[in-house]
Design a protein around this nucleic acid. Structure first.
Length: 483
DNA sequence: AAAAAAC
């Protein structure tokens, strides 16, 4: 199988070959001919399936003809986060280097004026997050009446983030006759409503969900008390003792904890950077760039980094917190073990997390084994297993089927009020549906109860701040870098 | 519960 039969132009084929790709992924193979035939496409695909190139490559071929007019972009791509938007732009820069294309990025957090200037010069490809795009249209600096092709990417995530009303507004600003490419990982009712309204006789392409969690990722959990201080200490131990750690993303549930954990690691001599949505855009970009280049081995991040970001060669994912929503776990650990490489995912679990953990094990259909950490006090975890086992068993009786991708359907069905930008994801909806039996391991017999034991005794410090004797050199902070 | 996204 090669790219040559898909109908791409010679220029694009040359760029693909130069990038070292020889065979298309299933979504590329199926979508590209339809895009080139100017059909609408509904692509149901996860990130990591080669989805971006599935629209970038044919768009480059289509854009070889024609020229952009001032303030009237020819194509428009909508992305849920700034980082994803920037990542798509990189793909255009990479594969479109041989073409004189004007590609503009309209995202928040950066200068409005520069973007406006670029729009006046005419753009072939406009890549945007919804808020900033609407800002430009409302100020009159941007006309969407010349858009020939519209891409809506990560639609279900936009739904989670409350962007659907914005998407609908934007869809009404582009010509009715445009071509639309629509990508989503799942099809909840609210998304189905959007596709029914805005797609014309779409070609539906569904690529098999990559096994929810890649087999190349070794998963484990480590118990801990909920004391932030002890969690940070455990995190340091995990980093020190991790095998074959090259670099790691450390996920926290809250932005403030991202900042705290990052600072703490730095204080203890680790070379770490932070990434969350309250940082200014230049700092976000800087952290991500340094991490990608390998200059920064540790990235402490919120779920802004959980989905879609392409960071090759992440050896470890560490969940400082168990994510609230099981899908987020799958996305987080999907940052490692990519492209057939091996990866390691370790999750720190406190007693209060048993529900979230049971939901994760049910979603992935596999129990997460305890990490082997000699001397680590597991007493805090006995409460977890004890409380978690009945929950997992109950889940086996009444949970949803994983073959039904439109999870939480009814919870999305109502609403649609413009002013409500709140996510409508209903927590705990997994309790209401039915599902396959939970794995044997997850429902294994619970150990004897240890009632009332929620806090592990304070462990002896593994090392004092400033004692970096066991820390590999590359994990150390360079002297007087990054205050 | 939290995060994300416009000034």
């Amino acid at each position: 199988m090669s790219f040559s039969h898909l109908g791409l132009s010679d220029k694009v084929l040359a760029a693909v070959a130069a990038a070292g790709y020889t065979s298309p992924t299933p979504i590329q193979d199926q979508a590209i001919p339809h895009v080139l035939a100017r059909r609408d496409v509904l692509g149901i695909a996860q990130t990591g399936t080669g989805k971006t190139a599935a629209f970038v490559l044919p768009m480059l071929t289509l854009l070889e003809k024609g020229r952009a007019r001032a303030r009237m972009p020819r194509t428009l791509i909508l992305e849920p986060t700034r980082e994803l938007a920037a990542q798509v732009k990189e793909q255009f820069d990479k594969y479109g280097a041989g073409q004189k294309l004007n590609v503009a990025l309209l995202i928040g957090g950066v200068s409005f004026g520069d973007q406006d200037l670029k729009l006046t010069r005419g753009v072939d490809v406009l890549i945007a997050t919804p808020g900033r795009l609407l800002d430009h249209t409302e100020r009159g600096g941007l006309l969407l009446t010349g858009v020939e092709l519209l891409v809506i990417d990560e639609a279900d995530r936009m739904l989670d983030m409350g962007f659907i009303p914005d998407i609908e507004r934007i869809c009404k600003l582009v010509p009715f006759t445009r071509q639309t490419l629509f990508f989503t990982a799942t099809m909840p009712n609210e998304i189905r409503r959007v596709t029914d309204t805005f797609l014309h006789n779409p070609e539906k392409i569904e690529v098999s969900r990559p096994a929810t969690t890649a087999a190349t990722v070794a998963q484990s959990q480590v118990s801990c008390s909920r004391e932030p201080h002890e969690k940070r200490e455990l995190l340091r131990r995990l980093l020190r003792e991790a095998k074959e750690l090259k670099n790691a993303i450390i996920f926290c549930n809250r932005k403030r904890d991202v900042a705290i954990v990052c600072k703490s690691l730095q204080k203890h001599g680790f070379s770490a950077g932070a990434l969350h949505g309250d940082m200014d855009q230049s700092a976000r970009t800087a952290s991500l760039d340094q991490f990608r280049k390998g200059e920064l081995p540790l990235l402490v991040a919120s779920d802004v980094a959980a989905r879609g970001l392409d960071i090759p060669e992440v050896s470890h994912v560490l969940n400082f917190d168990v994510p609230y929503h099981p899908d987020d776990y799958v996305h987080r650990i999907g940052r490692t073990g990519r492209a057939g490489r091996t990866g390691t995912a370790i999750t720190i679990v406190c007693p209060a997390d048993f529900k979230s953990l049971a939901a994760i094990e049910k979603l992935t259909g596999q129990a997460i084994p305890q990490a082997d950490l000699p001397g680590h006090d597991a007493s805090a975890n006995e409460a977890v297993v004890e409380a978690g086992a009945p929950a997992a068993a109950a889940a086996g009786r009444s949970s949803r089927s994983r073959s039904a991708p439109d999870k939480g359907g009814e919870s999305y069905a109502r609403g649609g009020k413009r002013e409500s930008r709140k996510p409508r994801r209903s927590g705990g909806d997994h309790q209401r549906h039915e599902a396959p039996a939970v794995t044997a391991a997850a429902s294994k017999a619970a150990p004897p109860p240890s009632i009332g034991r929620t806090l592990a005794p304070r462990r002896e410090a593994v090392s004092e701040p400033g004692d970096h004797s066991h820390l590999p050199a590359f994990l150390l902070r360079p002297i007087r870098a990054r205050g």
